[in-house]
């Protein structure tokens, strides 16, 4: 059993015998030092989605899922195609990979994990830290070098990320995929 606050995107909870994939999980502090978890779930048997709320310490039965290393290959509407080392292809639509979709870009080389439930691929996990290139950002407005002043920047797929004010177009940056937040400037991947 896991507590609700331990459930992350791509976890699967067994609720009343039904497997529910966590698409989104938001931790929010409520009153008197308690918290709630708002989750968007998809039923892996019926495909229906629902929004739910749990107390942060509610116990949920987590299903252990099989995982296989894959890389992103290409987009073939309406599916994103990933391949493993043996060139097996796995197709997932945007709803399957909602939580990582903002970080899927053409040419990405990250080693991802395809997630399976009862032999069927259901989603993909990205590494905790990924490196992406800034496609567009305004110039530094204040000349800040501390990294504390932030400004918006766009990746090549249009995803907007708040980056340090000193970042420029063409810079490579590290992003935490759990939060979607900028971590630091990075070297270009080789």
């Amino acid at each position: 059993m896991k507590t609700a606050q331990e459930m992350k995107p791509n976890s699967v909870a067994l609720i009343d015998g039904q497997p529910w994939l966590v698409l989104k999980a938001e931790y929010t502090k409520s009153g008197r030092n308690t918290a709630i978890m708002k989750m968007k779930l998809r039923n892996l048997l019926t495909g229906s989605t629902t929004e739910t709320v749990y107390k942060f310490d509610d116990k949920l039965e987590q299903v252990t899922l099989d995982k296989v290393d894959v890389t992103y290959s290409y987009y073939s509407e309406p599916n994103y195609v990933f391949v493993d080392e043996e060139y097996n292809q796995y197709e997932l639509n945007k709803d399957d990979i909602e939580s990582v979709l903002p970080f899927i870009v053409d040419g990405m080389t990250d080693t991802c994990e395809a997630v399976f439930f009862e032999g069927k691929v259901i989603s993909v996990d990205l590494p905790t830290t990924i490196v992406r290139q800034i496609d567009y950002t305004e110039g530094s407005a204040r000349g800040d070098t501390s990294g504390k002043v932030m400004k918006p920047a766009k990746l090549s797929n249009g995803t907007e990320v708040k980056v340090a004010d000193f970042c420029e177009i063409g810079d490579w940056i590290e992003i935490d995929t759990r939060t979607g937040e900028y971590k630091s400037r990075a070297k270009a991947p080789v």
Partner: peptide, 24 residues
């Protein structure tokens, strides 16, 4: 579950949502 009072915006998005429990 009657929750605590808060003026924060997130409350509107959580009010009335279900929280499925065992035994239907």
């Amino acid at each position: 579950n009657l929750e605590y009072l808060s003026a924060e915006d997130w409350v509107e998005g959580c009010h009335g949502l279900p929280s499925p429990q065992p035994d239907k």
